[in-house]
Amino acid sequence: MTTFFSQHPVLAAVLGLLLLALVFGALLGYAAIRYKVEGNPIVEQIESLLPQTQCGQCSYPGCRPYAEAIANGEEINKCPPGGESTMIALADLMGRDPVPLDADPDTIGMKKVAFIREDECIGCTKCIIACPVDAIVGATKLMHTVIERDCTGCELCVAPCPVDCMDMLPIETTAKTWSWSIPQGPNARFQANVFATDGGQA
């Protein structure tokens, strides 16, 4: 046997490789069955990062569908309510480069809540139908009102209102919700000119 192989080194090499291929192939096959990933847990992770406003500004009907779309390669910059931080968290999760948000920069991350000017409400229920989180109470011909606690500020109720009695009010800071801002840090004066930062991606 040994002598045969030493006389035919090429044959020995081919056979050896073949054997190796068989062994490792079997290992791979076993691993593929044993460690099969069920479903797509990444969607859950993405969804947990999204703000759940269900606003549809990403052009998907709700946060979950957008999460699924991101998992399938959709851009990560289509969630204005989540703002910059959500986009960066998504970039981290997906291992992609951060991209500027696809929205009007003035409105990004601004927390709002819907408000019904109740004198003008005619009780048409159109906003109730539009609200994705059932945060508007009322019945036909009865005045409606927004449950502020549950309103996600998605603005979906504004367009359907036939009498334009819906307002999106920015949530105002009160003494109770006020908080200290982050100090400016050293080099505050030169911050605007800084062209490279120490943060960001490793």
Binding site: E47, L50, P51, Q52, T53, Q54, G62, C63, P132, V133, D134, A135, R149, D150, T152, S179, W180, S181, I182, P183
Partner: peptide, 24 residues
Amino acid sequence: RFAKSEIRKESEEAKKAERAKIRF
């Protein structure tokens, strides 16, 4: 103080998001 208030805000928002998700 800044970090504490941000953390509180974040957890508020996370709760709100969770509620919104359930309601949705």
